[in-house]
């Protein structure tokens, strides 16, 4: 489904150049559950952001179902993120003034031809799926960390993306809550969802089907 060939990323800060990715080749197949491991600073987030099209590689080829993503313009990339990718962040990134339902519905706001009723119905369905059917109207500050991450996962799922990208999704959670989040991912995988999980913790990576390890910008 996804093919990365010789992806490089060089950050330039002032006079300094830093090559965070030094030629990545990676294939992700439908219904894969992949863990991306590596110590802090090894380039995991950089790679994930490129796969999620939040950032562009300095060079290399990125194909999704044979379609060259690295050649799309900004509007097409926005659409790509909206349709194909669901992000789950370490810091949840919920909008504080919106209810759980509104937060989950956000991607649908930017999808064409979805009216409010449909948006709310789908958002509610996703919140029920992650076990928050009774917290629809809660604001983020009225929920625990684990609940917030579940809202974020519901938001990632709501537009039926091809790929879920989760960057250290349990990094801000205690071990018990982490485990229940990992169970949720396992369930989603069992239903056919493709997942790329970024983590630096071995125990977390063990939930995945396959693990790849990144070190100083290359896969080892």
């Amino acid at each position: 489904m996804i093919e990365l060939t010789n992806i490089r990323k060089t950050y330039i800060t002032g006079e300094l150049e830093y090559e965070a990715l030094k030629g990545i080749d990676l294939t992700i197949n439908p219904n894969d559950y992949l863990a991306l491991m590596g110590s802090s600073g090894s380039g995991k987030s950089t790679l994930m952001n490129i796969i999620g099209a939040l950032d562009v590689p300095t060079s290399g080829e990125y194909l999704l179902r044979k379609k060259p993503i690295h050649e799309l313009d900004d509007n097409q990339i926005s659409e790509f993120r909206n349709q194909e990718i669901g992000f789950v962040f370490q810091t949840f990134n919920l909008l504080p003034k919106l209810s759980a339902l509104e937060n989950v519905g956000l991607p649908l706001l930017y999808a064409d031809g979805i009216e409010k009723e449909e948006r709310n119905a789908k958002s509610r369905e996703m919140l029920e799926l992650v076990g928050l059917g009774d917290k629809l109207m809660n604001k983020p500050n009225e929920m625990s960390g684990g609940q917030r991450q579940r809202v974020a996962i519901a938001r990632a799922l709501v537009n039926s993306p091809s790929l879920i990208l989760a960057d250290e999704p349990t990094g801000n959670l205690d071990s018990k809550t982490s485990e229940s989040i990992m169970e949720l991912f396992a369930n989603l995988h069992a239903k056919g969802q493709t997942i790329l999980l970024v983590t630096h913790e071995k125990e977390i990576s063990e939930f995945a089907q396959r693990t790849i390890v990144l070190k100083d910008g290359i896969i080892i």
């Binding site: 509007n75 926005s78 659409e79 993120r81 930017y110």
Partner: peptide
């Protein structure tokens, strides 16, 4: 600004 980043991540175009 963080909100703008998040909206962009879930599919908002620059113009949106």
């Amino acid at each position: 600004i963080k909100e703008i980043g998040l909206r962009r991540a879930v599919g908002a175009k620059k113009n949106d």
